[in-house]
Amino acid sequence: FRLLGDLSHVIAIIILLLKIWKTRSCAGISGKSQILFATVFATRYLDLLTTFVSIYNTLMKWMFLTTSFATIYLIYFKFRATYDKNHDTFRIEFLIIPSLILALLINHEFTVFEVLWTYSIYLESVAILPQLFMVSKTGEAESITSHYLFALGCYRGLYILNWIYRYVTEDFHDLIAIVAGIVQTVLYCDFFYLYVTKVLKGKKLQLPA
């Protein structure tokens, strides 16, 4: 489940990078969500410098870090003329501050690394909101953008299956990650419904006005 989840995550990021690079445009893409995702990786993968889990773990962490910052570069620098800032207006400070406060209050251990890891977990659960908000504001999304969102939504959904499996088999559970992962996946439900009923039938993703 975890491997599928990570692959779904990688596919989402590659779809987004290819969409922007091929169409040389980031229309319909929320730069704010990408900033939040880069922050999530930067604060979660600090342990790259200290602990080694596995080759796979290290490779994936570096890949997520480099691709998320590359996406930001494309949006805010290379193709900034196509960045639709009038529709990307979600106030991300309302996501950042509460996540930070919550991470300081509810965590496994009050150390810098652990609080930052917890912050990244809470922030990731709401990081897609600016993008979903932007899609609702523009009222539609290009089909490639909806495939990106579908893959991204599946990633943490698959992680939930992984957590169930690990709880049953290893009696392992991390409530912070599980609760945040459920919140994160639930946020996509509305989109999943539209994706399955519309995009898979070849229609454009049109949100009811």
Binding site: R2, D6, H9, R44, D47, T51, V53, N57, M60, K61, F64, H108, E109, E114, W117, Y159, N162, D174, A177
Partner: peptide
């Protein structure tokens, strides 16, 4: 010693 909560997931 307190088991350092190592996060083995991405």
């Amino acid at each position: 010693p307190v088991e350092e909560p190592e996060h083995d997931e991405l």
